[in-house]
């Protein structure tokens, strides 16, 4: 194996700044998409456990639609096809004037896609709380909405902390797809360093270490949180 090692490259101007910049993009995309996914996923999860059959159907249809098309294809649909389907004025705005088109599209696509996965987690959390608590809430005179706000959701979120963590880490990793529509985030930056310097080994190692560090930090923090917030008597908390 013929290779010229040069680990110093990673700490030299401008490459170190490329890495910092890339990590910033990765984290920004992940957090923005997470906000969309968490809010929409919760609403969909509530819909799927609702007593209203129409709401249940909409929730199910959304999940099936979004999880059966590859994320990359969804990203291309939002980026290339969606603006063409809009009315002329709006389409032109999206294509020409929308600030940071690649970033905005990625956040939107990633958020909507992950919402379908979060919906399933929220649903399983609500189901784990159980029909008994739901009926008990109704019996003491709470409305359906109040049962969700005061009983089902607070317990459900505490039960699904571990799956929520892995969903966040999935968003964090999936943000690398942004590079396909020109947002040079962490993976894209290291690829760029490789192309400029031919030091692929060092560049990819840097990305690998950064991704692992962030993952293990988030996991450690959430494990701590999970222990503090566990619902007594729930299997998920006994691990």
């Amino acid at each position: 194996m013929q290779y010229n090692w040069d680990w110093g490259i990673l700490f030299r101007d401008p490459y170190i700044w490329w890495l910092v910049d890339g990590l910033q993009w990765t984290l920004t995309i992940a957090i923005c998409a997470w906000v969309i996914a968490f809010c929409l996923g919760s609403i969909l999860g509530i819909m799927r456990t609702s007593i209203n059959p129409y709401l249940r159907f909409i929730g199910t249809a959304y999940v099936e639609l979004f999880r059966n098309v590859p994320l990359l294809v969804q990203l291309f649909l939002w980026y290339f096809v969606f603006p063409e389907l809009l009315p002329e004025e709006a389409g032109r705005w999206v294509k020409r004037e929308m600030p940071m088109p690649g970033f905005t599209t990625t956040v939107l696509a990633l958020g909507l896609y992950t919402a379908s996965r979060l919906c399933e987690q929220v649903r399983s959390g609500i189901e784990a709380v159980g029909i008994g608590q739901r009926n008990a809430g109704r019996a003491i005179g709470l409305s359906e909405t109040k049962v969700y706000i005061h009983i089902l959701l607070p317990n459900a979120y505490r039960i699904i902390i571990a799956p929520l963590t892995s969903e966040f880490l999935t968003i964090f990793k999936n943000s690398s797809l942004a590079l396909t529509i020109g947002v040079i985030e962490l993976t894209g930056m290291t690829r760029q360093i490789e192309e400029y310097t031919f030091q692929g080994f060092e560049a990819f190692t840097a990305a690998t270490v950064i991704y692992s560090l962030v993952t293990f930090t988030v996991m450690g923090f959430m494990l701590h949180l999970e222990k503090r917030l566990y619902v007594p008597g729930m299997i998920a908390a006994e691990k």
Partner: peptide
């Protein structure tokens, strides 16, 4: 380790490494 990495990064890694290792 592998579960903490994005698949795209792993694809780039091997796209770079396999030819290098095989020469």
């Amino acid at each position: 380790f592998f579960r903490s990495l994005p698949l795209i990064l792993v694809i780039f890694w091997l796209y770079f490494l396999v030819p290098l290792i095989l020469g």
